[in-house]
Amino acid sequence: MRPGDELPPLSVPVTRTLIVAGALGSRDFQDVHHDAEAARAKGSPDIFMNILTTNGLVGRYITDHFGAEATLLKVSIRLGVPNYPGDVLALSGRIVSVNPDRVAGRCAVEVAVTGMNRLGRHVSGTVRVSVPAEEPSGGPGAGAGPMGTFPGAGA
């Protein structure tokens, strides 16, 4: 794990359900995130994802990769084009820096994250995440391996 390393990409289908569940899960009841007619009346072609859901997805992308011991320290994002239903958000990341964390035995990794959809760049930003300084041992139990290897609990 060193600066310049690319994270495996993550594709998130932007369904109506994700947009609405994300908006309500974040207690954001702005009508443009759940009511297509209201969104159109405000000049948007459809409902679109709220920033809190994008924030949550960026955080999930990072902890999915770094595993069960990863703790988010900072998430800083800027939105570009909207996420409309039917699109796919393609998240990618690159390690910017690896530094000792305040907590002994851990390091703080800074990752530059970009999320593209068919309209262009939906999100760009940086995430700082605290991870154990050593690579997890391959053994069983919590902390082993990236989240991607967890058995598929239905979302």
Binding site: V12, L18, A21, G22, L24, G25, S26, R27, D28, L52, T53, N55, G56, L57, V58, G59, R60, T63, D64, A68, A70, T71, L72, V75, A142, M147, F150, A153, A155
Partner: peptide, 28 residues
Amino acid sequence: RHWCEAMGDRHPAYTGPGAVAPPTMLQA
């Protein structure tokens, strides 16, 4: 739980006894 189900986030720190909230829920 509602947040994690929406985001598809299965981080083990967010479930079970001793669970913490996903930090990105801060504003929620």
